[in-house]
């Protein structure tokens, strides 16, 4: 016998982390984005982060809309520039927990340079990159992450550009935490996000996510579920795998797991230690000569 539950008693356990007045989302049925947001919501609660002091920044694209569904300070910025905006937030108010949540095209292609340099600086932000392997918001064009000979609207004869191995890129640039999961691995993703939220420095999580509308149906997946099944079957958890071995190749296993977890001082720590006494103290500043194209020695007459 089934028990009838009063509809009013039903509440979504992650409700307090979401902007309920913005739901339903714009995302298609079968899209993996909502699933990743669910994991993120649980991770936010589990991490103990002060939600009033947590900001989420997105770029442009389907994933770029994540910031608008989460009940934090939400910033929906320009295409590719979520990371530099987040950098500004963090530097001007170090008390904030800053999360960038955006897509593969936004973060690794148009915003690729910022990704590299934020990792190099070890800027204290968490970047969640939802990789659906396609430019979905604009209607299914090939991305830097489109694998194998996949068909897209701009590669109608099949893609032939080699795809980007994102974990290897951010690892090489100096990220202190690098992991990859898929929309199938909801518990692992949640755990990874929780762990990353608690860590300091530049943290990066790639999440493979189905796009049935614009990637799936052109590339042999009947629906979102078919892509999820593939994640289930093809994913191999290899924590600590060298990132040069985790490229996504069509028909090959998808390596997931936590690849990098190391500690190194973040940007502000380095800055404070380098500046030492110069920081926050009113020092004597000369107003002497401006530019000295001829070299320092001419300046101080020493």
């Amino acid at each position: 016998m089934s028990t009838l539950i009063e509809p009013t008693a039903l509440t979504n356990p992650v409700e307090k982390v979401l902007r309920n007045d913005r739901i339903p989302t714009i995302w298609c049925p079968g899209c993996g984005l909502g699933t990743t947001v669910n994991s993120f919501a649980y991770a936010l609660m589990a991490s103990g982060a002060d939600l009033k002091k947590t900001a989420i920044v997105s770029g442009i694209g389907c994933s770029g809309r994540v910031s608008g569904y989460v009940a934090l300070d939400s910033f929906h910025t320009t295409h590719g520039r979520a990371i530099p905006f987040a950098t500004g937030l963090k530097l001007a108010n170090p008390e904030l927990t800053v999360v960038v949540y955006s897509g593969d095209g936004d973060l690794t292609s148009i915003g690729g340079n910022h990704l590299i340099h934020a990792a190099r600086r070890n800027m204290d932000i968490l970047v969640v990159c939802v990789n659906n392997m396609i430019y979905a918001m604009t209607g299914g064009q090939a991305a830097a992450t489109t694998p194998g000979a996949a068909t897209s609207t701009t590669t109608p004869y099949g893609s032939f550009e080699p795809e980007l191995n994102i974990p290897q890129l951010v690892d090489a640039a100096g990220a202190c935490y690098v992991a990859r999961w898929t929309a199938f691995h909801v518990k692992q993703l949640e755990k990874s996000m929780t762990e990353a939220l608690k860590k300091k420095g530049f943290r990066f999580i790639e999440v493979l996510s189905p796009c049935p509308t614009l990637y799936g149906r052109r590339n042999g997946y009947a629906d979102g579920l078919a892509q999820m099944k593939e994640y289930k079957e093809m994913a191999k958890v290899k924590n600590g795998a060298p990132t040069y071995e985790v490229a996504i190749t069509h028909g090959q296993p998808i390596i997931v797991g936590k690849f990098v977890d190391r500690d190194r001082p973040d940007y502000l720590t380095l800055m404070r230690s380098q500046l030492g006494a110069h920081y926050h103290e009113v020092a004597e500043v000369g107003v002497g000569c401006g530019d000295e194209s001829e070299g320092k020695e001419g300046c101080c007459s020493c």
């Binding site: 530099p84 950098t87 963090k90 910022h114 800055m271």
Partner: peptide
């Protein structure tokens, strides 16, 4: 503080993050 960004695209939005942080 001053941060030298990787390009002008970055600089021109980093400053806006700073503004929204107060």
């Amino acid at each position: 503080l001053f941060i030298q960004m990787e390009d002008e695209l970055a600089a021109s939005i980093t400053l806006q993050g700073m503004v929204w942080a107060g």
